[in-house]
Amino acid sequence: MSGSFWGKGLLQGLAVTWRNLTHRSVTAHYPDVEPDLPPRSRGVIALQEENCTSCMLCARECPSWCITIDSHKEVIPAATEGGRDRSQNVLDQFDIDYSICMYCSICIEVCPFDALHWSPEFAYAEGDLKDLTHDMNRLRTWMDTVPPPQPLDPGAEQGKELDSYRASQAAEAAEAAQPAEEES
């Protein structure tokens, strides 16, 4: 571009708009075409009831106080003679109020038992505010839409359990190698 002359800005404006006109627009035609969502999209929280022990961690850690949990203990009689009776938590109520939920994922991160998962479903708008509170059954249905876990990034930590397993495997291999050396 040679220096500046009177009208240069005017011509640049015309050039930019002409270029936009002649190139394909990037608009995604949503209702006719499903959106291309990224892998770990946060749409709705799904509940795997069997894993939940109603430890209340998620309800306590939620910054918006949108999770309501109620449960009772059931006694499972001892399996063997003179053994201890086991008790098991049974969920009566597990509600997430999506009118308050701020999709911060603290509940999912905090759950020690992997009972809560993210699902990319986003189309659950309702006509009535009350219907935005999803109960236990509805949260269960969202589990069908939870995608399989994404592969970790190449250089990431693999997690404590995997690391300690690999460490113990390496230690066993080293031990197996050593006695073999000692013997021979």
């Binding site: 936009n20 006109l21 627009s25 608009t27 035609h29």
Partner: peptide
Amino acid sequence: KAMAHMQSRVGPM
């Protein structure tokens, strides 16, 4: 339509 495409969108469809 022309204004839409100049603004990288599609206009009424």
